[in-house]
Nucleic acid binder design. Structure first.
Lengths: 198, 198, 198, 198
DNA sequence: TATGAATGAGCGTTCATTCAT
DNA sequence: TATGAATGAACGCTCATTCAT
């Protein structure tokens, strides 16, 4: 009996999420209105708040889900053998994060993992990214004088750095790619090509 | 006469800034309300917007001023000879940035330099930091296989990274200091002690 | 200058009140919606709450104003010489209070004078009623063995008693008139016709 | 089997009532939420409404039960021989009614007997009070020029009047006792000491 | 009877920003 | 410059009641 009820609950939640995705696809995250979502989902406003603490909770979930999809894809890739491969793998994730200023702000707010009572989806995405990167860096032909965990941490720092610069009018897409490349080379292969030799 | 008017103007502006600082000292940046500030300054709401483009413009100015004070101090220091010295020099800046989550968000938003028409105070602080760091890194006993500009860029990325982690309950103050040390060592002195040899 | 501004304020307030009265005339007090009022007044919702603490504050004012109008009328009457005259004078006030269950509930809630920070309009109407009644009872051919204030107090008790019974399906209009007459006779002229003799 | 079912039903009802009393004891009538009650009773929300038409039906029952207890006590008393005795007898009833503003409002709403299809517990309490008072007033040394029913009606009006004033901060407990005494003396013994003579 | 997810209308609130004076 | 009333779009929330299972 409890299961039957839960099914209805899941359906409602799915409808809300689908409606929200629809709205976002049409007008972007920032333009999403709770009112609009419940109307499209054919659900009462109160129901919305029975499923999500607030509007941001839904957004967090939505963004987290997308991030997870990216990570699923990334995990399925063969460990990259060089820096261009890393960048190529991570680029869609960067694209996701820079799709909208509002999204980036949200990500920043929620990336602070357990700053909230429970670890939210976005924080989890960050944790997963860390794991994936660590493995890659351990397996690939990168410097071994420091732990993969530290390397991964640094890569993430660069990732966020470059992502933040996306919203700075001074930089062009290409410049940022170059900057990221340079940073990663200097970080992962100090001594340049000599790293391979060394 | 124009001078007299200007004097009054400057006084009003000073009163607004003083009032804002007062409010912030009591309740923090996030809790600052324009309403409260103008009341304490004894001026009308409209006057506020005659002096500052918007609320954030004041906040930017306030935060920028603090950052500048830090940089004045930092610039007066002798170029650090090792990583602990760098960290010691930068720590107060980190403390400033982590004083409040909201402040950090603002800083990140405005770190993207000219995301607004004119380069604001926060972006300028970043630019200055970049200059100082570049000089230090050029002068000090750090890796020379990449440009000081790139090194500086990376240091800033790590700085922000670690600062962000301050708002993540998982990390303790000490852990973060250690992490920053490790990151900087790996970044500025790849090959560890070998850097001294190189 | 302050006066000019105040004029605009008064106009806005007047527009809000007029709009509210319009809505109430059409659909009753209970059906009044803040949304509807601000729309008709051509005013923003925020403005409504800048003028009235909440919806009930406006309603209180509206009901109080009507009560005051009744009292203005009542005060202009010559002091009644007998009980039917008292009842005739008070009947429109009763009619006002029983026009809507919702109104009566509000009156009850706010009659408790200073139970709120400031004495509201409804409580003031009650106070004025007390004054008027006291004067009447002092002047008229009614019992003199107790103070007019006490007599007035009793009359008000009967008034509310009978008013409350209006919302009880058992009683018809006429029954209540009779009951009030009997109560007032027994209260104001104990000893029946003998009072005239006495 | 029907009996078994009925037994479970009664148990559920008892649990709901007990839970409600618990909540009320802790937070008062106004703060009682159906949600809270069903949680404590360990039943589903729907179950609540299978047992009580609506929330007020439960409240009415609860308040009515308390009133009945008072009346049981009052009925057991010997008919009072004077006004202080009447007041002493009724005082606990007043205390009950003034325990909470919200309770008084409810009582007033339901005092109007059959304003609902069926006469509820509160209305019944009023009816019983009326009977008791009528008998007392018929038996005691009070005015006989009007019917006991009318006298009783007036006493109830005064009772409610004084009770209402409890929620008006202007009046103190003692003042109200005195006012009630004066009102009852003037009502039940017009002519003052003459009543003793009569 | 029992369940509990869903309902739903509307209130109050927020507060940076504007604009007529 | 200075004034301050007015703006306005959502959000969050409430919580008794219903209804399909």
């Amino acid at each position: 009996m409890a299961r039957a009820v839960q099914k209805r609950t899941l359906e409602t939640r799915a409808r809300l999420i689908a409606a929200a995705e629809e709205v976002i696809a049409e007008a972007g995250y920032e333009a999403m209105r709770v009112e609009e979502v419940v109307q499209r989902a054919g659900v009462a406003k109160g129901t919305f708040f029975a499923h999500f603490r607030d509007k941001e909770a839904l957004l967090e979930r939505l963004i987290g889900t997308r991030g997870d999809a990216q990570l699923d894809r990334i995990e399925a890739l063969p460990p990259p053998a060089d820096i261009p491969a890393i960048i190529a793998a991570l680029n869609p994730l960067i694209a996701e994060m820079t799709s909208e200023r509002y999204v980036f702000d949200l990500i920043l707010r929620y990336s602070g993992a357990a700053s909230r009572a429970e670890t939210g989806p976005i924080a989890q995405t960050f944790a997963r990214t860390d794991e994936v990167l660590s493995q890659w860096l351990a397996l690939g032909p990168f410097r071994k004088d420091v732990t993969p965990a530290l390397l991964s941490s640094g890569v993430q720092a660069f990732l966020m750095h470059v992502t933040a610069l996306h919203f700075c009018e001074l930089y062009h897409e290409q410049t940022l790619q170059e900057m990221l490349t340079e940073l990663l080379e200097a970080w992962l292969l100090p001594g340049g090509t000599g790293a391979k030799a060394g």
